[in-house]
């Protein structure tokens, strides 16, 4: 079972809630994905009071645990303020921490990320940091108190799939005990299966589902791929080798030699 900050989740697929054609389709996609954790971007405007209430009601109505994120924040201060606001709105200490460093690639500003993570963990937050695949940054985040790491595998929404498999593999090797969630850049179910086969604990998706021709069907496809990849990892994958190994012994066959 996937365990994040002591909570157990039956599904290893986390789903974002932005960019769907309609809330009705979002709702069906969440159900089809089986996700037990969904992320919601907390925009300042819709955070307080009655504004945006209808959308929050709809999200709450999905009956799936909500992980608020600080999407769109570009500085430590902005991210920390948004996290505190999320704590009030959702009555939870959990926050997906996102500090954007580059507007074109939406690459995380890892320096600001580590700083914001320190501040928030000191305030009792359970931080889910959206980071790059950089090993040293990951170490700093763990030092800062993060008990889960969420590296990208490609830029957000790029649908490119894992660009640096070696780095992802090395992260897994260095942090055998820390839950690792691939957070961004997945485009196809096969990408999700691929990172799950590396032993990642879960994946977080949004665009690949929301912008699919049929988001509901795609959510189901990803759910199957994530499960297949995870089972395959547990089952033990064969290492590739250069020479063929006959699957049926040929020794003793009449035609041998």
């Amino acid at each position: 079972m996937l365990t994040l900050y002591g909570n157990e989740y039956p599904s290893r697929l986390l789903l974002g809630t932005a960019q769907y054609p309609s809330p009705a389709i979002l709702s069906q996609a969440v159900k089809a994905s089986g996700a037990s954790l969904i992320t919601v971007s907390l925009r300042r405007e819709s955070a307080g009071g009655k504004a945006g209430g209808a959308f929050w009601e709809l999200i709450r109505g999905l009956d799936v645990e909500v992980l608020a994120n600080t999407a769109g924040c570009h500085s430590v201060k902005e991210a920390v303020t948004t996290a505190r606001m999320a704590r009030e709105v959702f009555a939870t200490n959990r926050i997906k921490l996102e500090v954007i460093g580059n507007a074109d690639t939406l690459q995380p500003d890892v320096f600001a990320l580590v700083e914001a993570a320190r501040i928030l963990t000191a305030e009792g937050f359970e931080v889910f940091p959206y980071t790059t695949e950089d090993l040293v940054v990951a170490e700093r985040l763990v030092e800062a108190g993060c008990q889960v790491l969420m590296p990208w595998c490609a830029p957000i929404g790029s649908a490119k799939g894992p660009l640096n498999l070696d780095a992802l593999r090395s992260l897994r090797g260095h942090f055998p005990q820390v839950p690792l969630v691939v957070d961004a850049g997945l485009g196809r179910p096969s990408h999700a299966a691929q990172v799950m086969e590396l032993g990642f604990d879960a994946v977080l998706l949004n665009t690949a589902v929301a912008k699919a021709g049929d988001p509901v069907a795609m959510a189901g496809a990803f759910a199957k791929a994530v499960e297949a990849g995870h089972i395959a990892f547990q089952a033990g994958l064969l290492e590739p080798r250069d020479m063929a190994v006959p699957s049926t012994p040929v020794l003793g066959k009449a035609t041998f030699q």
Binding site: R43, E45, S46, K50, A51, G52, G53, G72
Partner: peptide, 13 residues
């Protein structure tokens, strides 16, 4: 397109 019924002025962003 923002999921909100807030009528306030346009944001700088």
């Amino acid at each position: 397109m923002i999921e909100s019924d807030a009528q306030g002025p346009m944001t700088a962003r």
